[in-house]
Design a protein around this nucleic acid. Structure first.
Length: 298
DNA sequence: CCCCAGGCAGTTA
DNA sequence: TAACTGCCTGGG
């Protein structure tokens, strides 16, 4: 066991885990079930979550401000988990600012008080949200796991085997028909095949998107087959590239109509209103509102 | 049998 | 540029 610190966090490292203390505004349930990711599942004991990020499997628990990560050491925390879990952002401040905007957001940020917007891998996010289109969450998860099992590298963790998300080159070398037989993603398989080939030609990194304006970055992502406005905004938000992106899906449209309009309106109108009303915090607002809508309104 | 699910591409007017 | 339509698949 050894004690150290990184940024504002105290870290105790044990043989098979680390404990990170004094974390505020944080809940694993809120983070992993607010709709931004597909590969985290509750642990068998029901108290934590286990998931795969990059080439790592981690098992996490959170109690009284202390995050325990099995499968991580101090260096992993600094190089992977600190950024992935967005531990450098002051969510207390963000929630305070959002709550001051109106009573709807006040309720939403209190409901999802532990949400953090994960900084996820560009390629994985791209493919995952292409799969998400006109689909339901259990199926999306299933399709991604089938792809990982077929095309992803094997990882051993605590005597069990897991799979990395597939590399673009591997996934892209598979044809539509082969993909379809593997993962049953239907017509989305053609999008996956095409987009992998496009990504090999013109990949993107979060920093690259950050250097573009929101509109430019969105237009860039729309160039990939199977990426429309909503999926593009999800990629911008969930890779941590543009935290002012405001993805409008059926849930967000529904909750915005109910809370702000009391009538049917177009997606375009929702987007315009959100950017005017929430400004730079639009992406955060979207997550709190989406989670609030999904868990409370139905 | 129907409808729906975290939209998208392709086609019209 | 806005409106319309068909769509793999699996579950209810």
């Amino acid at each position: 066991m050894s004690t150290s610190s990184y940024k504002s966090y105290k870290i105790i490292q044990y043989e098979n885990r680390i404990e990170v203390s004094t974390i505020k505004d944080f809940s694993l349930k809120d983070i992993f079930s607010c709709g931004q990711c597909f590969r985290w599942l509750p642990t068998d004991d029901g108290n934590g979550y286990i998931g795969v990020v990059k080439d790592r499997v981690a098992r996490m628990y959170f109690n009284d401000g202390t995050l325990t990560i099995f499968g991580a050491n101090y260096d992993d925390f600094c190089n992977i988990w600190y950024d992935y879990l967005d531990l450098g952002t002051d969510y207390g401040l963000i929630k305070k600012q959002l709550a001051a905007i109106d009573s709807n957001l006040d309720a939403a940020v209190n409901f999802g008080a532990g949400i953090r917007i994960l900084k996820q891998e560009p390629f994985e996010t791209l493919i995952s949200f292409i799969i998400s289109a006109n689909n339901n969450i259990p199926r999306i998860r299933g399709i991604i796991e089938k792809l990982a099992k077929q095309y992803g590298e094997k990882i051993e963790f605590e005597k069990k085997f897991y799979r990395k998300f597939p590399e673009c080159e591997i996934l892209g070398s598979s044809c539509e028909n082969e993909l379809s037989l593997c993962c049953h993603a239907g017509y989305r398989c053609a999008y996956i095949e095409k987009t992998c080939k496009q990504f090999m030609q013109s990949p993107f990194e979060s920093d690259m998107l950050k250097n573009m304006s929101l509109a430019q970055a969105r237009k860039f992502l729309l160039g990939y087959m199977g990426v429309g406005n909503k999926v593009a905004d999800c990629i911008l938000l969930f890779t941590g590239s543009h935290l002012d992106a405001f993805p409008v899906d059926v849930w967000v449209k529904r909750v915005m109509q109910t809370l702000y309009f009391q009538k049917e309106i177009s997606i375009k109108q929702v987007e315009l209103f959100a950017h005017e009303h929430f400004g730079d915090l639009a992406g955060y607002a979207q997550q709190y509102l989406f989670y609030y809508a999904r868990e409370k309104m139905l």
